[in-house]
């Protein structure tokens, strides 16, 4: 009930802020709107997390997985695009559900940007990684059972991440959403998309068994 309430509070605010911004910045309206939508759509997840009873152990494990994914991103700084962040987000989601997945994704973005630099792209990364985690949580059953589905999801999440970030690039540079320009951006970023997808597949295949085993062990040992 409370969860629903928070949605009701959020939904009128989104259009209100968007309209206010659109009036103020008519030229860059779309960039503004997208930034707001992305940021505000994280809020219901945060509020739901805030309201729901989470056991202390899960809370600490979410923090630990977030820290691990940030460290992964730091370790792999020399290889642009080749990052284990998505893998950790998906794994958390698979073992602790969609909400934990969203949190790990969004928080990883915020925290790693303390090291890499915050900017208007932060909300976009928060949302992208968050939603990748959320969907992975919804599909956790299939992802755990079937390696092929896991790989497909790894590729999908790489492509989705790249395409979501491209929206921002186009809006930021042009101020409006031009489909041909967007396609150009998608095409020009294709090598990154491929690196994302490949790194996701590699890390998920590499991590899913051993880390899955560790998480199962923890879950069993401390009955979570």
């Amino acid at each position: 009930m409370k969860k629903r309430l928070s949605y009701f509070i959020i939904f009128p605010i989104i259009p209100a802020v968007v309209i206010a911004g659109a009036v103020l910045f008519s030229e860059k309206m779309y960039a503004w709107i997208s930034l707001c939508v992305v940021f505000l759509s994280c809020i219901p997840f945060f509020l739901a997390f805030e309201k729901r009873e989470t056991s202390v152990r899960r809370l600490v494990l979410i923090a630990a997985m977030t820290a691990l994914s940030v460290i992964g991103r730091i370790i792999f700084t020399p290889l642009p695009g080749f990052k284990p962040v998505t893998a950790f987000v998906v794994l958390t989601a698979m073992y602790f559900g969609p909400q934990a997945g969203f949190m790990t994704g969004a928080l990883s973005a915020v925290i790693s940007n303390f090291y890499f630099g915050q900017g208007p792209w932060t909300p976009f990364q928060m949302f992208s990684w968050g939603i990748i985690g959320f969907i992975a949580g919804l599909l956790s059953g299939q992802l755990k059972k079937n390696k092929v589905i896991l790989c497909i999801y790894a590729v999908f999440s790489g492509v989705m991440y790249s395409m979501l970030m491209d929206i921002w690039t186009v809006l930021w540079a042009d101020g409006y959403f031009n489909i041909s320009r967007y396609l150009m951006a998608v095409v020009s970023a294709v090598q990154f998309t491929i690196i994302y997808a490949v790194s996701n597949v590699v890390f998920l295949l590499l991590f899913s068994k051993p880390i899955g085993k560790m998480l199962d062990r923890i879950k069993e040992k401390y009955n979570l």
């Binding site: 805030e50 979410i62 923090a63």
Partner: peptide, 20 residues
């Protein structure tokens, strides 16, 4: 604004140097 989330953030920030 979001106390629980902020605690998770604080823990993660503590874990990072520890893990390194």
């Amino acid at each position: 604004t979001v106390p629980k989330l902020s605690l998770v953030l604080s823990m993660a920030l503590k874990f990072i140097p520890m893990y390194k």
